[in-house]
Design a protein around this nucleic acid. Sequence first.
DNA 1: GTGAAAGCGCTAACAA
DNA 2: TTGTTAGCGCTTTCAC
Lengths: 339, 339
Amino acid sequence: MRNHPEITIHHLANVLKISASTVSRALSGNKRISDKTRELVQLKATEMGYRPNVLAANLRSKKTCTIGVVVPRIDRFFFASAISGIEDYAGTNGFNVIITQSSDLLSKEIKCVQTLFNNRVDGIILSISMQTNEDKHLKLFSEKNIPILFFDRYCPTIDCDRIVVDDFDSGYKITCQLIERGCKRIAHIAGPELLNIYSDRKDGYLSALQEAGLPLLDGYLEFTSLTMEEGKQAIARMMLLSNPPDGVFCGNDTTALGALEYCQKNGLKVPQDVALTGYSDEPFSAVVTPSLSTVRQPGYQMGVMAAQKIIHRIENSNHIIPFEQIILPTQLIIRESSK
Amino acid sequence: MRNHPEITIHHLANVLKISASTVSRALSGNKRISDKTRELVQLKATEMGYRPNVLAANLRSKKTCTIGVVVPRIDRFFFASAISGIEDYAGTNGFNVIITQSSDLLSKEIKCVQTLFNNRVDGIILSISMQTNEDKHLKLFSEKNIPILFFDRYCPTIDCDRIVVDDFDSGYKITCQLIERGCKRIAHIAGPELLNIYSDRKDGYLSALQEAGLPLLDGYLEFTSLTMEEGKQAIARMMLLSNPPDGVFCGNDTTALGALEYCQKNGLKVPQDVALTGYSDEPFSAVVTPSLSTVRQPGYQMGVMAAQKIIHRIENSNHIIPFEQIILPTQLIIRESSK
DNA sequence: GTGAAAGCGCTAACAA
DNA sequence: TTGTTAGCGCTTTCAC
């Protein structure tokens, strides 16, 4: 089983008795070439099983046609959907996508970013980790004029494009829904305040309370890292307060699920005794009993837009395009847990 | 904001008054160099902000240190977990991962594979689409001696490594569980017979029936593409049979969820009137009511092993390593839907 | 232990 | 429209 040697443009050139540059032009869709030659070359190329050496082309043109992606976790539905969107758009536009995950660790995120940087990606799309409280590792890109784009979770100190949803508004609205259904004592299990998305959700919650003239009672606002276990523990503490909440807005669906489990184990009826809401619309939220009220984020669409925007910027790097923050709408989904 | 020019080994060489090859050796950990020079070079490299040009190195060494991945869908939990495993292992071993998705379409799969091929990935890990009934597009790789590795869904006509689970055994066992709990009329909603995983599950089911002396009644075996909607429709037809099943083994959790919804809408108690089981252990299966019995596949672990195995093969391409099929154990998870 | 030189496969400025 | 030429930045033989 011998390896056939790789066919290059020089082989084609030899066989066709023309120059390598003509072959190159014919293959790259250059205008300055006759239709006849082009067809001839293309025919021969397929015949001989030529495949372009992307590496060499990239080295020469100093572009890799690759975008790097850093997400906290690939296996979270929201991020998987976003990646799916990125890959679909990038794939049909001649770009490759290198995926990396930070596992919500700053140290890992720094490594990912470094790897992508060394691999000379043309742009980087990222959603920062829960720990990210510095931006040194991202400055690398700005310094070399490599486009950065944040989606969902961003670093406020870096000036670049962002695709986000209005977490403040969503947090506000979902709290209002709890108020409208009659809840008087509403608590919130929040995520790390460091992250824009969580602090915005929290601010939306606070704003809704204030507007309705409801007080923020002691112990009604807890900051966690939003795991299921922490959801259980947080609601446990809340329900043991002298004046327990009758409604809890959980920072994400996983926490809400933990809270739900706690309630069911402790004989609390949801939503009668305490109404619950989550955030993110994970696949399980619609099918759990009672089904979870939540906020749906357009993950796939965010991915598509992110890819679109960064590729546009890469391909127009000579132009000055002002940075933009695109805010995509979310959808409030009211289900049994807060009916 | 001027771009600083990229530092190359030649810049370092000039500054240090040594040759580029020495710099190269110092940086690549070559033995034939004095400790003093090595340290000097490395120091200067960091000082000047040198970053190796991976492209040039790859062009020269004809290796890309990149593995390509093709999965049906990124946003399915099983595949997302596998990707997560691949990326973790590859990332810590100096390999990049390019992800593509076939959307379960043969045509798209061919494109993905072609792209990865042109990008000269050093190896490709894939799980084929539901439509894949040919292997021409995969022969490309075998011809160039580029390692292919299948995980979960494989193409039986390609001779290469595989990481799979024992779908026959799992199908057999989960059917046995239905039998043990007293089901007498057990149906199966199967996936496309083309795919090993689904036909194996089906064969396991048939084998369990036969062993228990239970008949396969007319209309008890349906082939679908395992969407939620098809699950509903299939079970609807089954429950309208003159002799409806009292247990249904669904080809995956999504179908089982559809079946569950049908039962709940039509006043059928699960598991009392009809027991249900799924396959895959999606995140929702544990939390739906009644919770779904299912089979857990070690997605993350399969990803790690896949990456490990293919990287090992890439780095030992001079050796002849016999192809191997690794069968990972699954875990039967009995929950309320078949208690 | 170090340097000189060739070349990986491609593109693009320039010339014809 | 086509050819010539000069690299992109690196590795790696082959000298010394």
